[in-house]
């Protein structure tokens, strides 16, 4: 990986300003352990913000000091902060298709003349026919939709079954890779057999790779990205067998030129997940 390029991408500054996303922070935490120059760049940027704060200092009103001490010293001694993690966003509910329709029948009833009654009956009958016809159309449509849904469910089920079989092996870990900032909808799952080092990837939630490009999977091993192979360009398979990886702390997918690259292009990072 080109560390200079990584540093000059602005990631360090985003990190110290508290702007980096969770994914970016986890990549950075991996990389900083192995690369003192990254560690140093972080420290430099933090010192800069410290110097900025010192330079732009504004003295608070003198009486505040005693007020704050009074407040602090009145706190119970055993109050210690605890880290509160916010609950993950609840997934959005699936759209519910509205199918129920309530039809109100006309309520006019007039016994004055037979003619009026007959006209109304005819109208009601016509209305009823139209209604029944519409309902039948609707039922036909729903049936067709249900059949289509069943077919696609069956395809998914057989794919899910083979994934399930893998998951049931005690040595297999499922690592969920989530989209990085700006690509929140993307998702992929790595199934990693820690016993035989086999790596499988499902990546239905990645957009089709543009012409001349190909997705590449990386294992982050002790802060270093290791090539885990490229995704086949055209394939109807749901799950791909990737390169064997005996040891890793995270997996990530980048978009690279066709054929893959020896080192990842971090600006084209799509998804990442820690183990």
């Amino acid at each position: 990986m080109d560390i200079k390029e990584y540093i000059s991408s602005g990631i360090i500054e985003a990190y110290v300003l508290g702007l980096a996303t969770e994914e970016e922070v986890s990549v950075l935490d991996c990389i900083r352990q192995k690369h003192p120059e990254v560690q140093e760049a972080i420290l430099e940027a933090q010192l800069l913000l410290e110097d900025l704060a010192t330079e732009q200092a504004v003295s608070p009103a003198p009486e505040l000091k005693d007020q704050i001490w009074a407040q602090i010293s009145s706190l119970p001694a055993d109050v210690h902060g605890s880290v509160v993690t916010t609950a993950a966003d609840t997934p959005a509910p699936a759209d519910i298709v509205e199918t129920d329709k309530v039809v109100k029948l006309p309520q006019h009833r007039d016994n004055h003349t037979l003619a009026i009654a007959a006209t109304i009956l005819l109208a009601v009958s016509l209305g009823g026919n139209i209604l029944l016809y519409q309902q039948r159309e609707e039922s036909d449509n729903m049936l067709a939709q249900a059949e289509a849904a069943r077919d696609s469910t069956q395809t998914l089920l057989s794919a899910a079954n083979s994934q399930w079989e893998l998951l049931q092996r005690p040595s297999v870990k499922a690592v969920s890779l989530a989209g990085v900032e700006g690509r929140p909808d993307l998702k992929a799952v790595v199934l990693w057999d820690t016993q035989n080092a086999n790596v499988y990837l499902t990546a239905e939630k990645l957009p089709a790779a543009p012409q001349g490009k190909q997705y590449q999977l990386w294992a982050i091993v002790d802060g270093q990205p290791v090539d885990a192979g490229v995704l086949p360009l055209a394939s109807t398979e749901q799950m791909f067998k990737m390169n064997n990886i005996p040891n890793a702390q995270a997996f990530a997918i980048t978009l690279e030129d066709e054929g893959g690259k020896p080192a990842p292009t971090l600006s084209d990072l799509y998804v990442i997940g820690n183990i």
Partner: peptide, 19 residues
């Protein structure tokens, strides 16, 4: 987004020079 990142970096580098 990439421009935002590199400009923030450039801004902080200039800030370092000023300080």
């Amino acid at each position: 987004l990439g421009t935002v990142k590199t400009r923030i970096r450039a801004a902080l580098l200039q800030l370092r020079g000023i300080l």
